[in-house]
């Protein structure tokens, strides 16, 4: 099919530059989740949209060469496990499940608020990977009649 070859050269060139900025913005949103609006959910969706941008502009074949899809599966499953591990560490150190056992730090500093920052990062990875993989699978299913 024609669409699997991706879009025109203009779109590809713009995408090559803009994808990194979108990724950086997503990472910024994730890391400032405890200081400003945003957090793991919003940042994860931005990361998924960056990958989706590459998939729409360059086509599936290039993307599966560029990204290791089965590795993304592993990352997605591992991040869910990491959330549980942080929770169980809370039992052993803090006394209850998902207790905030790290240093609280200063109020408006970037490295502060204990386990909220690592949990934000874990959720961002989880949401981003799983949403990208859903679109990947949905776009890959050949459903058009006569294809």
């Amino acid at each position: 099919m024609r669409q699997n070859d991706g879009m025109t050269l203009i779109v590809k060139t713009v995408t090559r530059i803009s994808v990194w900025m979108i990724l950086l913005y997503g990472i910024y949103i994730i890391f400032h989740g405890h200081l400003s609006p945003g957090g793991g959910f919003a940042g994860g969706v931005i990361i998924a949209l960056a990958f989706l941008n590459v998939m729409l502009a360059y086509g599936r074949k290039f993307t599966s060469d560029w990204l290791n899809i089965s590795f993304l599966h592993d990352v997605e499953a591992a991040s869910a496990t990491l959330f549980l591990i942080i929770g169980i560490l809370g039992i052993s150190i803090g006394g209850s499940f998902l207790a905030n056992f790290l240093m609280k730090g200063e109020l408006f500093a970037l490295i502060s608020s204990g386990t909220i920052l690592p949990l934000n990062i874990v959720i961002g990875i989880k949401v981003g990977m799983s949403l990208f993989l859903v679109v990947w699978v949905l776009a890959g299913s050949k459903t058009v009649k006569g294809e």
């Binding site: 959910f41 799983s130 859903v134 949905l138």
Partner: peptide, 20 residues
């Protein structure tokens, strides 16, 4: 509601897969 929005998108994706 923050968690509810994310779950809603997951269920929408699953419904789309079923419809396909």
């Amino acid at each position: 509601v923050l968690t509810s929005i994310v779950i809603e998108l997951g269920t929408t994706a699953m419904l789309v897969a079923l419809a396909i």
